[in-house]
Nucleic acid binder design. Structure first.
Lengths: 182, 182
DNA sequence: CTCTGACATGTCAACCCTGACATGTGGAGC
DNA sequence: GCTCCACATGTCAGGGTTGACATGTCAGAG
């Protein structure tokens, strides 16, 4: 249950409508930190507003409401960020897959590991390109969030790629080993 | 909703009771792949049994039931592992915190980043020790799951540590920068 | 002027997960 | 023999999440 804190964090960087927040979750944030759809975001914003952690600061054309974080909201966010217990909710389908790879036979293992190696290489390259491409054309106030997070993603992709590559090498070595000595 | 596949994967490595599976989720698996408590495991095992993906192969003393995966279960697991769409559920409170660090003022940022750097270094060392300590005293059939997964964890910890260290350096540089030139 | 698509918000049933409650057994130590 | 603890399974209410349904507006292309 970290959705309220995710929203507080995004609003701490810049005011936004629920719609804009929902789109934020579709990019890097949702890719490796926390997912949320508009169906959970709108009700959560209402709840946060009721607790005075956020506030509607503007009402635009299409019934849009722009939210901003309040002082109390900032205090809540800060306390959540500082009192990290080290653990928390972890749920990652991709990592689970990696855990279970050894249950496959060698050919299938190779196929999955190869796919992972390729995907992480591509993802890393794509992300690196995106980060290099300046701090966004529109120089958003969330650029710094994106920069730090992006570099984190880069490191994760690289580590995963190296892991998969090494696993592939060992797999090949083991197969070669079991074929030869008879 | 990958719990059924997590269970199929564990059972593919070796038959086990629900209780043993629940403990499996308390270690590395639950730490960085997928969490589950016995309250969701027991009902899920019943559902899997109803779909003939697992089967009760033994009933022990304290009303314990040992489950094993069936041929259909193996097929389902394999298809899930091979047809990776690249994405899936991602929910990680720790990573979310990292995303939101830039919303803090420099002093708080330093404190959080330092904590992360220390924790990841400690976690890496502890994990490395555990992996080195032989392939388990009891040479479990799940040892290989643990080895590959453990090395993955090692890489992630290291990458995160390096990321935090670099962020700290830049933070210091920026603070020094803004203090001097006036 | 019409149509399309992005903008924008909302609800609801179904499903999943968590924490608390509930129950009972077998072995080891005193 | 008793007591404690790990073993072992289960249910259930409350809360979070998802996907589908529902509605409506504004701007730009044709």
């Amino acid at each position: 249950m970290s959705l309220p804190h995710a929203l507080l964090g995004l609003l701490a960087a810049a005011p936004a409508t629920g719609y804009e927040l929902a789109r934020e979750f579709e990019s890097d944030l949702g890719r490796y930190a926390w997912q949320a759809g508009h169906a959970s975001i709108y009700p959560e914003l209402a709840k946060l507003a009721a607790r005075d952690l956020v506030r509607v600061v503007d009402q635009g054309p299409r019934g849009s409401k722009t939210y901003d974080i309040t002082e109390q909201g900032r205090a809540e966010l800060r306390s959540w960020l500082l009192h990290r217990s080290g653990d928390g909710v972890v749920r990652n389908e991709g990592v689970l897959r990696m855990f279970l790879i050894p249950t496959l036979d060698p050919d299938d293992q190779r196929s999955v590991l190869t796919a992972i190696a390729e995907e992480t290489a591509a993802a890393e390259a794509e992300l690196r390109e995106r980060l290099k491409g300046g701090t966004d054309p529109r120089c958003s106030p969330r650029a710094e969030l994106g920069l730090l997070a992006g570099r984190f993603g880069l490191g994760q992709y690289r580590a995963t790629h190296e892991w998969a590559t090494r696993a592939l090498e060992e797999l090949d070595a083991r197969v070669a080993d079991s074929r030869r000595p008879n």
